[in-house]
């Protein structure tokens, strides 16, 4: 039984866990700042962007796991940076603008702040799992610096 359910349930739980963590941080910010009071919409937007980000990260990791390329650790860092600081907040802001009565400037600003906060708290949580704690944040950016050098 475990052979049937583990490969199906484990990815669901992993993705649902990351969506839950993101929502725990972003939902109150988006709701309380009055960007939108449509809870279902906030959950759907966050689930969509989060799944694309995390499934993409896992797929990039898989490429190096199966030795398709020499090492794509830097690729993962670039992907996370590009998604967390550009693609995800921009997509979320555009989606919130469709239902929000707030000004565009406010929507963009609040979405960016919410995303950067959830990214930093996510790094701390990953840091706790890897025994680095809050230093997980600086470790990530040191890795990014290394990745930049690797690209050059």
């Amino acid at each position: 039984m475990i052979y049937i359910f583990a490969p199906i349930l484990a990815p669901f739980l992993a993705l649902a866990g990351t969506i839950g963590l993101t929502l725990a941080i972003e939902y109150p910010i988006i709701y309380c700042t009055g960007i939108t009071r449509n809870g279902r919409y906030i959950v759907a937007v966050n689930a969509l962007t989060n799944v694309v980000l995390n499934a993409g990260t896992i797929l990039i990791y898989a490429i190096s796991f199966f030795n398709f390329v020499r090492s794509n650790g830097p690729g993962i860092f670039m992907w996370i940076l590009l998604m967390e600081f550009a693609a995800v907040p921009i997509c979320e802001a555009l989606l919130y603008m469709k239902v929000s009565e707030a000004s565009k400037k406010k929507v963009v600003l609040v979405t960016f702040i919410a995303n950067i906060l959830s990214f930093l708290i996510g790094l701390v949580i990953v840091g706790l799992f890897t025994g680095k704690g809050i230093h997980g944040i600086s470790d990530f950016f040191i890795s990014v610096k290394g990745a930049m050098r690797w690209i050059n």
């Binding site: 199906i8 484990a10 990815p11 993705l15 969506i19 689930a47 969509l48 797929l59 898989a62």
Partner: peptide, 12 residues
């Protein structure tokens, strides 16, 4: 596991 992730991601 990767197949599971792709299926779960598509459903979500």
């Amino acid at each position: 596991w990767i197949i599971g992730v792709i299926v779960a991601a598509l459903i979500i």
